[in-house]
Amino acid sequence: MEKKGRQRIRHIMKWNWQYYVMLLPFLIYYLVFKYGPMYGVLIAFKDYNIPKGILGSPWAEPVWKHFEYFFESPYAARIIGNTLKISFYKIAFGMIPPIILAIMINECKNKWFRKAIQTASYLPHFLSWVIIYGIMTAFFSQTSGLINRWLTQWGLSSYPFLTDPTHFQAMIVGTDLWKGLGWSAIIYLAAIAGIDTTLYEAAIIDGCSKLKRIWYITLPLLKGTFILQLILRAGSIMNAGFDQIYVIASDQVLGVAEILDTWVFKEGIQRMNYSLASAVGLLKSVIGLVLVLGTNKLARKWDEGLW
């Protein structure tokens, strides 16, 4: 039985060897740049010493020392909490709007207008967070921002959008949504374009209104794409957006904005606690992996799994 299987594989490989050759560079890429450096996670269990190198550094005593230190520090709960909260909000508030936008763009009959809206909506995706932070300050800064200037001109008091911890997570989620909305809509637009038009024609003949067609045809057929997106985002739930938060969070709001990645960066690169930073980074990756596997398993129950 086993022999037969192996023979079959050899047979397949022989006949399709061109494909395997084409695959080779990518396999090498992953081995060299993704799997190779992974031996570096060793430093999470060592007292890393730069001149001694990764292998030469002594083991931490006990080996879970750095994990222990992290969990005993007052930061652990808060940083993990912030990470999960911000990710959860980003998923909760960021999953539906792209679908709505995609449907709206799709239903738009004027072709020129449609193209213009689509282009304008995905443009922010290409801006870096540094630029977006500049735009945010121009609008939201309490002393010089446009919105606060309006507020004060109307006799209202100004509001610290960028420095008030109570609403800062909303700022994070809001700007992230603004930046990614049009871009995320593209995938749904593609999915909508793939829907068999005869379904709509049949529905029109049966007397379905536009809303009913969206409700009974478009949305159910977008379910697969939606679940795929959900799995991908659930896998990265521990990544709440390093570049965004590193750029826009000031000390005043760090209590609600510090996430695992920013903390790891500051701890590891800026303060040189490589071992501690790696321990936390590793922890994060393991949880992320479990989440991807978990959501995929869940999704397979609805026949929508990634693999």
Binding site: G40, V264, V280, G281
Partner: peptide, 9 residues
Amino acid sequence: MAAMVSLAL
């Protein structure tokens, strides 16, 4: 993270 550090190195 470990990958990131190593890459930085």
